[in-house]
Amino acid sequence: MTETVVSMNNISYAYERKNVLENVNLEIPKGSFMGLVGPNGGGKTTLIKIILGLIRPDSGNIQLLGKNIDTFRDWNKIGFVSQKANAFNKGFPATVFEVVSMGLTAKIGYLKFFKAKHKQKILEAIEQVGMLEFAYQNIGNLSGGQQQRIFIARSLVNEPELLILDEPTVGVDAENVKRFYELLHRLNREQNITLLLVTHDTGTMTEHATDIVCLNRTLHFHGDPQTYTSLSEKDLSTIYGHPVNIVVHDH
């Protein structure tokens, strides 16, 4: 039996009177790299907020790492890089080391302090994302792509089982997007971290993902990347509500 990291049954959610999610059923198997795609306003960010416990669904239930979300306490096993991560206060004077250290704040707990072993973990997380040489630089001086790596490191420092990323490559240039996916690929295949990635660069994503899910209020597709890329334009335009074309990168 393959373990599931997240399992959502019949999830529905409405903001005031606007139905954003209807009867969503989704299982994220352990070790998968799941790409979540869909039109803007399709409910992707809302779905993530529900998984993270930031909002409660109107109906349905959720299991996280085998536990009902209401009794789930291991929040540091779930890492999150927000859509807004890049919109943080650029003038905030914090070093890369300090930003990554914040990932440990909750785990260390109240009235306890950072110790040498934590420092070691922080540096390891920074090294994992290939940013060690910038450890004592001000985060505001880094490029958008580099900052996203730091935000990933802030999650990695907790050794998460699931890492959720909401449109992390917006505003990152093509070369760095490629390196970014290589990093995600490594985290997924070598460290066995389950990934849930929301993105619009379907071309690059299909090269790395193991599962693709298409969300527009309800789930319209759940399958492997090969099947997704072979979907006809007609299938896709019913999902998106307008014509689309997928850019497939060939090498």
């Binding site: 929040w75 704040t105 909750a106």
Partner: peptide
Amino acid sequence: FDEEHAKISG
């Protein structure tokens, strides 16, 4: 630094 992330992390 990041109120949302702080909340999520507990």
